[in-house]
Design a protein around this nucleic acid. Structure first.
Length: 255
DNA sequence: ATGGTAGGGCACCTA
């Protein structure tokens, strides 16, 4: 079973990319972020033609998340329970014995900004919710665009991406570690200790060609899934296509 | 190099 995540940065623009990628990589579950589409415009018919069910929570212009799956979703949850938020950043659903939580974590703009405070508040609310999800579901996968690079080896330059930089600051990394403290592991690290493996590259300054990136798209999995895990990947190929998303798809394969 | 590029939507905001 392949569980994937991809920040598509506008599904309106990236639908052809997504269709090709679904055909080639055949994920069983795909979590999408930054769909930037109102629900009435979600291309569920086109995705159904490829054999995927869709559940989604979108809005105009910004944010938007979706879960595509071979089997229908049950127990769909949109948003963080008890946390008022107009921004569509969270959708969760159950597929068989697996609970899947798709997150588009707040970017945060810059350390100390209002958006940064919102990011930390939002992550705190996610932590509280996931603590109960973790008890309810032994097989829990929390994946998406975390907008946090877990460690220095997940950045192209730790001098730039330091304790005071957005996406790598001390408080952001502490929030990520708190989520991991619930018994969730960065599953990519079950398979690779390599530095310089990135999932996002800025559109500017030829960052992809120069591999100036960050690994901020993560698949956290409950420790009980580790014996079932058979591989993890960052799929750089769609980043080489014409008019790409700035993010690469990532995935975890489990038996 | 406080720039650079991309998406949405038509003036800037977000990333």
């Amino acid at each position: 079973m392949r569980i994937a995540s991809w920040n598509v940065n506008s599904l309106n623009v990236r639908l052809p990319h997504l269709e090709q990628w679904l055909r080639e990589r055949a994920p069983d579950v795909a979590a999408l972020q930054e769909t930037k589409l109102e629900d009435s415009r979600f291309p569920d018919d086109a995705l159904a033609a490829l054999g995927y069910h869709s559940v989604f929570a979108g809005q105009k212009t910004y944010n938007g998340v979706a879960l595509l799956s071979r089997m229908p979703a049950t127990d769909v949850q949109i948003g963080i329970p008890g946390f008022e938020d107009e921004q569509r950043r969270v959708i969760a659903a159950t597929f068989g014995d697996l609970r899947v939580v798709n997150l588009y974590v707040v970017n945060g703009h810059s350390v100390g900004s209002e958006k940064y405070a919102y990011k930390l508040r939002w992550l705190d609310a996610v932590h509280g919710w996931l603590a109960s999800e973790r008890l309810r579901w032994p097989n829990l996968v929390v994946l998406g665009d975390f907008n946090i690079a877990p460690a220095d080896r997940d950045t192209h330059d730790p001098a730039i991406w330091n304790d005071d930089s957005i996406l790598t600051s001390t408080a952001e990394r502490a929030a990520l570690r708190r989520l991991e403290g619930l018994g969730l592991a960065d599953s990519y690290r079950w398979f690779s200790d390599e530095a310089g493996q990135f999932s996002w590259w800025d559109y500017r300054a030829a960052a992809f060609r120069r591999n100036l990136g960050l690994r901020i798209d993560l698949v956290l999995a409950s420790e009980g899934l580790r014996p079932r895990a058979t591989g993890a990947a960052i799929d750089r190929e769609p980043r080489t296509w014409e008019r790409p998303s700035d993010h690469a798809p990532v995935w975890l394969d489990i038996d």
